[in-house]
């Protein structure tokens, strides 16, 4: 437990008893998930249902879209319990500007963007705020299935000469677009999150873990090259 805490807060009242800084920090994390889970369902998953090449893939895409929307609601409920307002006021992260125009493009969002979500959520599975920790632990099987789906389909598509280049270009583009997802290298917010035990990793540590796993996916599983990327992110992100 971090020095700032004597006991882990088990509900919203206990979180508020720790003061405004703790609740504000929680609000930034929870609000980000409220926005991004909804954006993922609306921008990536829902439009991709009609792109699926087979009934089975169509239905799996539908199941995943509904799950992502369900995650959005569960984070929204947590925000509501904490009395957080305006969590949807800010736009979602810029990675959701990526246009899914093909089934391959969609598969790569599951393999890469959802992997970033898994990396972030794994850290929150140890969060000091017990309701957030329990929520993240309960969502991990679904999030891992989404990444596994993306990875399995990506392997098939990368093995097909007709789609291999699109797998590569989508992966490179998505990896570059996803890196800011983890926040600035010198982030005051992240210092506050770690002070209160909301997160354990620095933004650069989480980003490095994402790079490690996506490198394994591209170079080992798909036998593709990896884009040149920086694991530090010194600029302000949206």
């Amino acid at each position: 437990m971090p020095p700032a805490l004597t006991e882990e807060p088990r509900d919203a009242a206990a979180a508020h008893a720790l003061g405004g800084e703790y609740v504000t920090a929680l609000g930034k994390i929870i609000g980000s998930h409220v926005r991004n889970e909804a954006a993922g369902a609306a921008v990536f998953d829902e439009p991709s249902i009609s792109l699926a090449p087979t009934p089975r893939d169509k239905w799996l895409a539908c199941r995943m879209a509904m799950e992502e929307y369900g995650h959005h609601l569960k984070f929204n409920k947590l925000a509501n319990e904490l009395g957080l307002e305006d969590v949807q006021d800010r736009p979602p992260l810029s990675v959701f500007d990526y246009q899914v125009e093909s089934w391959t493009g969609y598969v790569m969002t599951k393999a890469i963007v959802d992997l970033a979500e898994v990396v972030l959520m794994e850290d929150l599975c140890e969060c000091s705020y017990v309701p957030l920790r329990e929520l993240c632990r309960s969502l991990m099987p679904e999030e891992r299935f989404h990444v596994g789906f993306g990875t399995a389909r990506a392997k098939r598509l990368a093995a097909d000469p007709g789609t291999r280049e699109e797998v590569r270009s989508s992966a490179h583009r998505l990896i570059a677009m996803t890196l800011p997802f983890f926040g600035r290298s010198d982030s005051r917010n992240n210092e506050t999150f770690r002070k209160w035990g909301i997160k354990r990793q620095t933004n650069d540590e989480a980003r490095a873990e994402f790079v490690r796993r996506t490198r394994a996916l591209l170079c080992d599983d798909l036998e593709l090259d990896y884009p040149e990327v920086a694991t530090r992110w010194p600029v302000t992100t949206s």
């Binding site: 169509k58 239905w59 539908c62 199941r63 099987p141 299935f145 596994g148 789906f149």
Partner: peptide, 14 residues
Amino acid sequence: EDDDALAMSGAILW
């Protein structure tokens, strides 16, 4: 992780 059951579930949801 039962993706057959998930596909059936998705079919009904769709």
